[in-house]
C-alpha cells in the first residue's frame, strides 16, 4: 500500500504541510517494501485556481492508496480522492516520520 504525506520538503524528517492542494511535496511511503519516495507538487502548489483537484489527480496517477495531511482537502479535491477510492487521514503535524507513526498508531482521523 502506498501512503502519501503532504510535506514542505522531502524525506522522513520533512515538516508536514497542513495544506493539501498547496503542499509543495508529498512524501510517499510504500508500507510493504518500506521504500520512501516523493511526488513533486510544486506546479500545482503555485497554480491560480484549482490547486486541490490537480493535486488529487496527480495523487491518483501515482497509484496512492492513502493520503495523510493536516487540515484536509477542500471539496473538489475530496471529491476526486473519494471517486478514486483513496483514503484521507487528517490532523497530522510535526515531521513526516511522526505523521506516519501517528497514522500507524490510529491517532489520525479518517475523513
Amino acid at each position: 500500500m502506498k501512503i502519501a504525506i503532504s510535506a514542505q520538503e522531502t524525506g522522513w524528517n520533512a515538516p508536514v504541510d497542513p495544506r493539501f492542494g498547496r503542499a509543495q511535496y508529498f512524501v510517499v511511503i510504500d508500507d510493504t517494501t518500506g521504500e520512501i519516495s516523493y511526488i513533486d507538487n510544486r506546479a500545482n502548489a503555485n497554480a491560480g485556481h484549482g490547486a486541490g483537484p490537480n493535486t488529487a489527480s496527480l495523487i491518483a496517477d501515482n497509484d496512492i492508496n492513502v493520503v495523510i495531511t493536516g487540515n484536509g482537502p477542500g471539496g473538489n479535491a475530496a471529491r476526486v480522492l473519494a471517486t478514486m477510492g483513496i483514503g484521507v487521514f487528517v490532523g497530522a503535524s510535526g515531521t513526516v516520520r511522526q505523521a506516519y507513526e501517528d497514522y500507524k498508531a490510529g491517532k489520525l482521523m479518517r475523513q
Binding site: 504541510d17 495544506r19 485556481h49 493536516g70 487540515n71 477542500g74
Partner: peptide, 9 residues
Amino acid sequence: CPVISTLSG
C-alpha cells in the same frame, strides 16, 4: 476564494 485560502491551514 480569498477567504477559503486564508482559512486553509
